[in-house]
Computed example of a mutant assay.
Amino acid sequence: MATRVSGQGSRDGQARTRLARAAVVAAARALFLERGYAATTIETISKVSDVPPATVYRLFSSKLGILKALLDLSIAGDDQAVALPDRPMVRALLADRDPRKQLSGLAGLVRGIMSRAEPVHRILVSAAGTDPDAAALLAELTRQRQHGHAQFARSLARTGALQPTLRERDADDIINALTSPEVYRLLVSDRGWSPQRYEQWLTEILIGQLLPAPADTSTAPGAND
């Protein structure tokens, strides 16, 4: 009986911790977007989230720790402790032998991430201008994004799916440029595109830039026989 009570207590404690983390992250997101990173204090986040300051520091260590948790949640879409490249959907995309489906899936993946994370990325970029630790976090986030996209360029190159004159490095550069937060911000946030239109555009331009044009069979011998 004592073991079951202890186990229940542990589960209850874990549930309370997750609720507290979620409340802090939600409050921080709203405050960062409303006031900016520099003007938001741990004390204000604590007050809005109704989580004591000591608990906030215990869970996140610092305001930058909160921002990092917010970024992780925004990119992944949940708080599971599984890195994005290791998630089944990403692994399935990289293993897909149809390059058009692979790039279409990549566009959908990027759209989902950007729709959640682009506003938070903007916060980080702003913070990086004055905070060296935020600048280091931005550099690491950029490195991770580039590493993830390099896997798609490598997969396409290994299967011989790229245009004949395109090197793997060129494909990597194209993918990184087209899927960047800056392009999403320009088209969706600044120019008013819907996320759906962005995804369709991204799919079409990735396929057009990376894969050989489909063979035109309408003029092939016997095509009209």
Results as ranks from 00 to 15, higher is better:
2 A>C: 05
2 A>I: 11
5 V>F: 15
5 V>K: 13
5 V>P: 09
5 V>A: 15
7 G>F: 12
7 G>M: 14
8 Q>M: 12
8 Q>K: 12
10 S>H: 08
12 D>T: 13
12 D>W: 12
13 G>K: 02
17 T>M: 10
19 L>E: 15
22 A>P: 07
26 A>N: 09
33 L>H: 04
35 R>N: 15
37 Y>R: 03
41 T>V: 02
42 I>A: 13
50 D>G: 07
56 V>I: 03
59 L>A: 02
62 S>A: 05
63 K>R: 07
65 G>H: 06
70 L>K: 05
70 L>E: 04
74 S>E: 05
77 G>M: 06
87 R>C: 05
91 R>W: 08
92 A>P: 00
94 L>V: 04
96 D>T: 14
97 R>M: 15
99 P>A: 03
100 R>H: 10
100 R>V: 13
101 K>I: 09
101 K>A: 14
102 Q>P: 13
105 G>H: 01
105 G>I: 03
113 I>C: 00
116 R>N: 08
116 R>G: 04
125 V>N: 02
127 A>W: 08
127 A>H: 08
129 G>T: 08
139 A>K: 07
145 R>G: 00
152 F>D: 10
153 A>C: 11
161 A>K: 04
161 A>C: 02
163 Q>T: 11
164 P>L: 10
168 E>L: 01
172 D>H: 14
175 I>Q: 00
175 I>P: 00
183 V>S: 04
183 V>P: 04
184 Y>T: 00
186 L>K: 11
187 L>W: 02
188 V>D: 00
188 V>G: 00
189 S>A: 13
190 D>Y: 09
193 W>T: 06
193 W>S: 06
195 P>S: 01
200 Q>Y: 07
202 L>T: 02
202 L>S: 03
205 I>Q: 08
207 I>C: 10
208 G>T: 09
214 P>C: 01
215 A>F: 14
217 T>D: 11
217 T>M: 14
218 S>W: 10
218 S>T: 15
218 S>L: 08
221 P>Q: 06
223 A>P: 10
224 N>H: 12
224 N>G: 09
